[in-house]
Design a protein around this nucleic acid. Structure first.
Lengths: 344, 344
DNA sequence: CTGAAAGCGCTTACAG
DNA sequence: CTGAAAGCGCTTACAG
């Protein structure tokens, strides 16, 4: 593989000059620059990543800390990996996947990635309200940006869909259609239990909706086990006062829910209205569901920008006064489908 | 961040001794080793990745070349990212995502990753029958392993589900249930057109099934646009001799297909039987579909092993005689669900 | 069984 | 406008 020396020799200049041409951090005569660029092209030269990072302490890599799999949001993980890889690429970053450790200690793989300087910053997925990884990275003085809206908004830069407003808007849309008994199906309970930000904030929004209006909102946790989920639904629909509408923050379950309800003779939207909270079109099996979509591309772009800023800030001296805690909270956008009808 | 010098100082030994303790490539007295390990622990030392790779030409990173998104297999990408990250982790590797370039030149991002030595080897997804990335990486002498069964089986090490046998087995299962007119719904046509290995081989299997037996097999390409897909289905079901069974290699479309057929009064399995070729349970919206599952964990483990071997081989001298072209072709395993019934 | 030293390929003050 | 030189943090022959 060609090194900077090879390029320098081919161009008839010093290695340092090649470096300056490539970084653009010094004025170079047009002649010299052209010669160097020709040599670079000719030799297919790309600077060695290890040498560059050793010297400059920049790797041009973002570590993406994956959430534990096995939750109801598995498909989401894949979307963010794609989305972040693309957004990061536009900023000149590559994305390194960091799988969560088997047990206990939050951020073992992440900590290794940080301490070994595999990356310049970490992007955290599956963020919890009080996420231990944030503190762990702060100790290491390692920049982070979160996909998730943590309890302490100034703990680290973050971006998220406004799940609280999303849940609220979903219930309101059903209320405005005349529904007075709404079942809010939250995320799977593992996510609730670990206090994932989207779980907690979605439920919070549902509870706010319950408090504000003439609509009764029953909050029920979903389950990764369809049979268990259907039992919970049945309990509600067997009750004296069954819901007339559903807001569902577990979009992957929606096709199955519709099938289960249909088997009970319950049609959407004839008998029950439905809104999906934070979904992709693909989650819905081609159904034209009224929904709030998860803006993955926008969130990926935002978190990349925040991470890049955090990297810059870590280099600067003016940063010592604590994290700047910029964030981007994305308001919900409702997409009207055909699953909301006036209450019977 | 602690360096090897800090550890050496704390342990009262030379830096080289620390290195030897960590690599295990030299006999070290128990005393010395204990002192070094204590210092490593104490300081939370992790060797700098850049320095290590600069010196040893090992990065402990695998580059995962992503397929273009937007195909019918988007969810699959996410599964492999998770699966590979986990499998790679067990072999001591981290996974770096490499997004395909916007246009033309196959492997620009990949080529950069290879030339800059961001990784020790590349794992290719979305492999085409004659994949230009394989040749590109060979020129660079960069090890690869493929998730996909290429035309030239000895071009590079690879693993794949045996899609040809999978399609064959699916049609045979339907034939054995008495079906004589089977519609094979292949992958989305973009994948067929780019000659993705799973597309081509799935169709090949369907055609073999057509040739071998008293069953008529109609091969139809799927579409990422549901409306278009349903038009194609309608054309078949409106024909004089409509199919009595479907084998579907586009699992994400199955919930929608069932809904569309139901709207036409066609019930599964009463009127039409169905087999899914290469799916995940989640693709199927909780339906108990008779299917051949895509063994992501097994494939991830296999491709990791192949990549690791390719890295070793690249270091060895005995390798110059061309690629060893090991592979692992995984036979289909049929999971019986409730969507296959005797032919009417 | 352990250490001193060279050098991997860069970047960036220092010098002119 | 350009170059010679130091050094980032490791690994690994070389030496004892």
């Amino acid at each position: 593989m060609a090194t900077i020396k090879d390029v320098a020799q081919a161009a008839g200049v010093a290695p340092s000059t090649v470096s300056y041409v490539l970084s653009g951090s010094r004025k170079i005569s047009a002649e010299t620059r052209a010669a160097v660029q020709a040599a670079v092209e000719e030799l297919g030269y790309h600077p060695n990543a290890g040498a560059r990072s050793l010297r400059s302490t920049r790797t041009d890599v973002l570590a993406l800390a994956l959430p534990l799999s096995g939750t109801g949001y598995l498909p989401v993980g894949g979307r963010f990996m794609y989305g972040l890889s693309e957004a990061a690429g536009r900023h000149g970053y590559l994305v390194l996947l960091v799988t969560p450790p088997g047990a206990g200690d939050a951020g073992a793989g992440l900590e290794r990635a940080a301490r070994s300087r595999f990356a310049d910053a970490a992007v955290l997925m599956g963020v919890e309200m009080e996420d231990p990884r944030v503190a762990a990275m702060r100790v290491l003085d390692f920049p982070v940006a979160l996909i998730g809206h943590p309890a302490d908004e100034s703990a680290a830069p973050w971006t998220d869909l406004d799940w609280e407003e999303s849940a609220l808007a979903s219930v309101r849309a059903l209320r405005d259609a005349g529904h007075r008994r709404v079942l809010y199906l939250a995320t799977v309970e593992e996510d609730v239990d670990t206090r994932r930000t989207y779980s907690v904030r979605g439920i919070r929004g549902a509870e706010r909706a319950a408090a504000e209006a003439a609509t009764h909102v029953d909050v029920c946790h979903s389950s990764g086990d369809p049979a268990e989920l259907y039992r919970r639904l049945d309990a509600r629909f067997d009750a004296a006062d069954p819901p007339t509408a559903l807001a569902v923050q577990h979009p992957a379950a929606i096709p199955g829910i519709l099938r289960h309800l249909a088997a009970r003779g319950i049609q959407v939207p004839r008998d029950v209205s439905l809104v999906a909270v934070g979904s992709f079109p693909e989650d819905l099996g081609g159904l034209d569901v009224t929904r709030i979509e998860l803006p993955v591309a926008e969130m990926s772009a935002a978190v990349t920008r925040l991470a890049a800023e955090a990297v810059e800030a870590a280099g600067d001296p003016g940063r010592s006064g604590g994290p700047s805690a910029r964030h981007r909270l994305i308001p919900p956008r409702m997409i009207r489908g055909s699953t909301v009808a006036p209450a019977p």
